[in-house]
Design a protein around this nucleic acid. Sequence first.
DNA 1: TTTAATTTGTGCGTATGTATT
DNA 2: AAATACATACGCACAAATTAA
Lengths: 235, 235
Amino acid sequence: MKNQTLWQGIASDLEKEIVAGSLARGSRLPTESMLSQRYGVNRHTIRKALSHLAEKSLIWSKRGSGVFVMQKPTIYSMGERVRFSQNLLDAGRTPSRQKLSLSQRLATHEEASSLKIKKNSKVHHYEGISFADDEPIALFHSVFCSKRFPALAEYIEDLQSVTQALKKCGVNDYIRASTYVSAVAASSLQANHLRIKPNDPLLCTTSLNTDQSGTPIEFGRTYFSGKHVTLSYEA
Amino acid sequence: MKNQTLWQGIASDLEKEIVAGSLARGSRLPTESMLSQRYGVNRHTIRKALSHLAEKSLIWSKRGSGVFVMQKPTIYSMGERVRFSQNLLDAGRTPSRQKLSLSQRLATHEEASSLKIKKNSKVHHYEGISFADDEPIALFHSVFCSKRFPALAEYIEDLQSVTQALKKCGVNDYIRASTYVSAVAASSLQANHLRIKPNDPLLCTTSLNTDQSGTPIEFGRTYFSGKHVTLSYEA
DNA sequence: TTTAATTTGTGCGTATGTATT
DNA sequence: AAATACATACGCACAAATTAA
């Protein structure tokens, strides 16, 4: 480990602290000024080291706020009932969602056949970003039959929860009927939203939820950041 | 595209020149000093922009030499006769190889069964890096039956070519019998050799070459950098 | 609600080290 | 051996976002 530059030494030093746990996951690092004093180097040198750790997705920074240690990959359970918020709470994370769009449009062929509705039926299209502790971990978009759930959009808008909105529509429970998983590379747009790099691996799940009678309710795709999420298929 | 910082504007400017072709693939960029004069900014600002383009694998820099535009992905043909050098020459690239190791050891079960030799037979193990225009594009390792080719190692050492070394051993032609392709994430060691980031996608090919009579000659794996190589299966 | 302090981000200037030409 | 070109590092100043008073 000789012949290291200053920033390389500092970066590997901080990395050791992170993997050892003395810098806890999710915690805030000392400020750049603090670190530059501690190591006796210029702030730019600290920033170069931090930049390297950020590239490796070990930390992420927020202007005006601080630099934070990335959380461990989230284990996302894919059982019969898939509930975003509960999954994250179970993993000890704080869930939140950001709406990107919520509108009505005509169903695609794939959507119509999956939902078992007529082609060119109107559907609610809900699209957004899922966060865990302010870290984006997934992009989702799903469609619901407008005819069956006329007021769903308003409920989602108010409640910020698909599960709660569906309850308002009389659907007290829904079941994951099928899930397909594939691996794709992130587009630049997706990468931007998920704060990762383009072409980073994404887990793409295509899923269909039905009510208890087996009638399709929701069809959608979710792109999980491969760095942050591990899908789990345990019973 | 408003509200851009200086380095962002310069980076997107240079990126446009690269994709448009006015900065040719493989060519050298103006020096950082030149660019800082051209754009009327400090050299550090140029370096920040270049650093961003390097992260996107659009350019790469060599200390003391210059900054170069990355080559296009290499179309690597996987026809009946797979020849590393000829493939690259066909693609207009300059091929070279760097030996990492060349030694003898016992064949693994997989290698022995593929080469149709007895288990625990000795094999030549040849491992290295393939370059195109000084850019590493693949890691390879392959094994040959030591009993059949006793002097192969010396020939490879001298000739730096598997095809030529095999000719010295009396194999004037060999044929790709089978190729399996999968996608894996780069280990840190692989990433280091290929100048990419850990977990970047690699194309892993497992292949078996035989002579004209169908007798196995060479069994090996090659890990292509997904950024630089596209495998082609055209006839 | 407004203000002030804090913290990260951008940018310039300078100097020196190191590898290549 | 000398010039060139990228890499590292220090110091200063200000902008932009956040947070706390």
